[in-house]
Amino acid sequence: MSIKFYESGNRLAEATIVNGLIFLAGQVPTNEDADITAQTANVLAQIDTILEACGSDKQHICEAVIYLSNMQEYEGMNQAWDSWVTPGRAPARACIQAALANSNWKVEIKLTAVQKEIL
Rank of each mutant, 00 (worst) to 15 (best):
M1D: 10
K4H: 15
F5C: 15
E7M: 14
E7Y: 10
S8R: 13
G9V: 05
G9N: 12
R11Q: 12
R11P: 09
R11W: 10
A15H: 07
A15F: 04
V18L: 09
N19R: 15
L21Q: 05
L21C: 01
I22R: 00
L24E: 00
V28R: 14
T30N: 15
T30S: 13
N31T: 11
N31H: 12
N31R: 15
D33E: 15
A34Q: 10
D35K: 11
T37F: 03
Q39L: 12
Q39E: 09
N42M: 14
V43A: 01
L44V: 01
D48Y: 04
D48Q: 11
D48F: 07
D48E: 12
T49W: 12
E52Y: 09
G55N: 05
S56E: 04
K58W: 02
Q59F: 03
H60K: 12
I61R: 09
I61A: 02
E63I: 00
V65W: 00
Y67T: 00
L68V: 01
L68A: 04
S69Q: 09
Q72V: 01
Q72A: 09
E73V: 00
Y74S: 06
Y74T: 00
E75V: 04
E75A: 01
G76H: 06
M77R: 08
Q79E: 14
Q79C: 09
A80K: 09
A80W: 05
W84T: 03
V85R: 14
P87K: 11
R89C: 04
A90F: 04
A92T: 06
R93P: 07
A94D: 10
I96L: 08
Q97S: 05
N104Y: 14
W105Q: 15
K106Q: 14
E108G: 00
I109E: 01
K110T: 01
T112F: 02
A113P: 12
Q115T: 03
Q115P: 12
E117G: 00
I118E: 06
I118V: 07
L119M: 07
